[in-house]
């Protein structure tokens, strides 16, 4: 069972539909026990960084997510959920994230339209099981105004280009981040979710 952390983020039904289509059972939860008993965790997210962290603290979920990630349970952060994996963000003043990955969240440079909205291509930086069977230059759907910087180069799996390099898929062992929405990225996105599902032992 995959636990989808339900802390009030917008459209998580599509994520659940996508997992169901792939044959994975999932549930929306904010219950610590259910999260500990899951085989994998997905941290979705839209909205503002600080609000999301406040919601996670309020629901007393910060420690359980960190514990489970450190216990090598597969954890996937999607969009804002990926950004929350990092140490700090500059969105509306400096605030702290989960700190599971080294790096910082910054606003996309205004030389391009912000938000970055639409289908953009993935460039592969290194091989990983998470990008198994992905066509080259595959399109995925992005919608975000902030992105990860100063990350560990060795954790960068795929990037896209929008006013500069934007980390699109990052990975540190069992911890995965996707800046785009795999559940909204057609068959490419479904393949990526399937690859994540394959990490469940």
């Amino acid at each position: 069972m995959i636990a989808i952390i339900d802390y009030g983020a917008g459209n998580i039904k599509s994520l659940q539909f996508a997992l169901t289509k792939l044959g994975y059972e999932s549930y929306l939860t904010t219950d610590q026990g259910e999260i500990r008993n899951s085989n994998a965790i997905i941290l979705p997210g839209v909205g503002a960084f600080e609000d999301a962290m406040t919601a996670l603290h309020k629901a007393d979920l910060v420690e359980v997510i960190k514990d489970e990630a450190n216990n090598e349970k597969p954890l996937l952060g999607i969009c804002l959920g990926m950004q929350l994996l990092y140490e700090t963000s500059n969105e509306d003043g400096l605030s702290n994230g989960l700190g599971l990955l080294n790096g910082h969240i910054e606003r996309i440079n205004n030389c391009v339209k912000v938000p970055h909205m639409g289908w953009n291509t993935l460039s592969l930086h290194r091989d990983s099981t998470i990008t198994y069977q992905l066509p080259s230059e595959a399109y995925v759907y992005f919608v975000h105004s902030y992105f990860a910087t100063n990350i560990n180069e060795s954790e960068l799996i795929s990037s896209t280009n929008y006013g500069g390099l934007i980390p699109a898929i990052v990975r540190k062992n069992n911890i995965i981040g996707m800046q785009f929405h795999p559940e909204k990225s057609g068959s490419t996105g479904l393949q990526l979710l399937k690859n994540f599902g394959e990490m469940i032992s």
Binding site: G10, A48, V143
Partner: peptide, 8 residues
Amino acid sequence: AKRFGTQC
């Protein structure tokens, strides 16, 4: 925008 995010 504050509650759901600018992007939506």
